[in-house]
Simulated scan of single mutants.
Amino acid sequence: MKITTDNVAQVLASIQELASKQVMVGIPATKAEREEGDDEPINNAQLGYIHEYGAPASNIPPRPFLIPGVAHAQDKINNHLQKAAKAAMDGNAEKVDVELNATGLVAQAGAKFEINNGIFEELKKSTLAARRKRGRTGVKPLIDTGQLRNSITYVIRKKD
């Protein structure tokens, strides 16, 4: 005896759910604030943008970490997105969410890895002197307190 079940509605709902979501990686406004007591007048999202693209008027060179970090993780990201698509075709909405979260984690890790290991223009002597004055000894660009790196996260949102 052969039993056939009609799960077309479940599959279509799962595909629609996947198609309506997007994984976004970066520094969302809700995670952008710097710790209390910092002298920085800007938040982590603004600081991340400045470092990603540079600020010529302030003599800050670009030190991109987000776009290259995600790009270096693209094969792993694509693997999880393919698994999400397969799960949607199987009607497994729960697995779709698991794979979208895995996608976000991989992309987030890629950006953080880039901050830790990327090759950036060296810090200026004045920046190093300012760090030493604050009791910091690190010379790595983009890493002073670690707040910028630690603020990188991902969110899964409904597409607009």
Score class of each variant (00 low, 15 high):
1 M>D: 04
2 K>L: 11
4 T>K: 15
5 T>R: 10
7 N>E: 06
8 V>A: 07
10 Q>D: 03
13 A>N: 14
16 Q>H: 06
17 E>R: 13
17 E>A: 14
18 L>G: 11
20 S>H: 04
20 S>L: 08
22 Q>N: 05
25 V>E: 06
26 G>C: 09
26 G>V: 01
27 I>H: 07
27 I>P: 01
28 P>N: 03
28 P>F: 09
29 A>W: 00
32 A>R: 03
32 A>K: 06
34 R>I: 03
36 E>Y: 05
36 E>L: 14
36 E>T: 13
40 E>W: 04
40 E>H: 04
41 P>S: 09
43 N>C: 00
44 N>C: 05
46 Q>G: 01
50 I>A: 09
50 I>T: 08
52 E>T: 03
54 G>E: 03
56 P>F: 00
58 S>N: 08
58 S>C: 01
59 N>Q: 09
59 N>S: 12
60 I>G: 01
62 P>F: 05
65 F>N: 05
66 L>Y: 01
66 L>I: 08
67 I>P: 00
67 I>D: 01
67 I>G: 00
68 P>G: 11
69 G>T: 11
69 G>Q: 02
70 V>K: 07
71 A>N: 14
74 Q>N: 09
75 D>T: 12
75 D>N: 12
76 K>Q: 14
77 I>W: 09
78 N>V: 06
78 N>Q: 10
79 N>G: 04
80 H>L: 06
81 L>E: 11
82 Q>D: 13
82 Q>F: 04
84 A>G: 11
86 K>R: 14
88 A>F: 00
88 A>T: 10
91 G>M: 05
92 N>T: 04
92 N>D: 15
94 E>D: 13
95 K>V: 04
95 K>G: 00
96 V>S: 12
96 V>K: 10
97 D>T: 13
98 V>L: 06
99 E>N: 15
99 E>Q: 13
102 A>M: 09
103 T>K: 10
107 A>T: 05
107 A>L: 12
108 Q>F: 01
109 A>C: 01
109 A>M: 07
110 G>A: 09
113 F>N: 15
114 E>W: 07
114 E>Y: 05
116 N>H: 04
118 G>W: 05
121 E>K: 14
122 E>D: 13
122 E>C: 00
124 K>E: 04
126 S>W: 01
127 T>N: 08
127 T>H: 10
129 A>R: 14
129 A>L: 03
130 A>H: 05
131 R>Y: 02
132 R>T: 09
135 G>R: 06
135 G>F: 10
136 R>C: 01
137 T>F: 07
137 T>W: 01
139 V>E: 15
139 V>H: 08
145 T>C: 12
145 T>D: 14
147 Q>P: 00
147 Q>M: 10
148 L>K: 07
148 L>Y: 06
148 L>E: 04
149 R>W: 09
149 R>N: 07
150 N>M: 10
151 S>P: 10
152 I>Y: 01
154 Y>N: 02
156 I>H: 00
159 K>P: 03
160 D>V: 03
160 D>P: 13
